[in-house]
């Protein structure tokens, strides 16, 4: 499965990230270090995106946005389908959430269920002033009334196909692979 050719390589991803950064900067929020939104990546796929997005925004803004991570394992709605699963990691927010603006960051936006869970998880840590959603890739196929505020790239993917955003050994985004729905056994490993 690892030798499947990527639909986006690292060069493409640079461009996608740049587009995403531009859209985040276009959000109608002030660009000052004190109030600039936290970039909170949804574990596990959103964390690498949030970090790279932060790096890119640092260049444009002249200061580093604060980055956090949100674990949504215990907020998912598929426990009855998939059974218990280990958490991806601890939730780590830069500080007290109440009154802050937040950009939730994820790698792929598909059904919208992950974002629904993330919103519920987030508000259990406080009352943010505003929340926006930034995704590296929007592949369509929404099952909930959820839309992204910032999108790096839009993909047309048949329903059921898997879009895997892969990272390299240092956790940097590496490539995006599309696995057709009929590719045999379901994908087991997300990062190479």
């Amino acid at each position: 499965m690892n030798d499947r050719p990527p639909i986006l390589d690292r060069t493409d991803l640079d461009q996608v990230l740049r587009s995403l950064a531009d859209e985040v900067l276009a959000l109608p929020w002030p660009h000052d270090p004190a109030t600039f939104p936290w970039l909170v990546g949804i574990r596990s796929g959103g964390v690498a995106v949030a970090e790279e997005l932060a790096a890119m925004l640092t260049v444009a803004l002249g200061f580093a946005p604060q980055v956090g991570a949100l674990d949504i394992t215990l907020y998912r709605d598929d426990m009855w389908l998939k059974g218990p699963r280990a958490a991806e990691g601890q939730t780590a927010l830069p500080g007290d959430l109440t009154g802050r603006r937040v950009v939730l960051v994820d790698d792929v936006l598909y059904t919208g269920r992950t974002v629904r869970a993330a919103l519920n998880a987030l508000v259990d840590f406080g009352r943010p002033r505003a929340v926006a959603l930034a995704v590296l890739l929007d592949r369509g196929g929404r099952e909930l009334p959820i839309a992204a505020d910032a999108v790096g790239h839009v993909l047309a993917v048949p329903p059921g196909d898997k879009i895997q955003v892969r990272c390299d050994a240092r956790g940097r985004l590496h490539s995006v692979v599309q696995v057709p729905v009929d590719a045999g056994s379901p994908a087991k490993v997300v990062s190479p």
């Binding site: 674990d71 215990l74 907020y75 280990a86 958490a87 601890q90 939730t91």
Partner: peptide, 20 residues
């Protein structure tokens, strides 16, 4: 035990509740 660590973090929040 790993999951318990996750739960313990919940018990230290202000909103000590999960919808799970």
């Amino acid at each position: 035990l790993d999951m318990a660590a996750q739960m313990k973090a919940v018990n230290q929040r202000r909103i000590k509740k999960l919808p799970t």
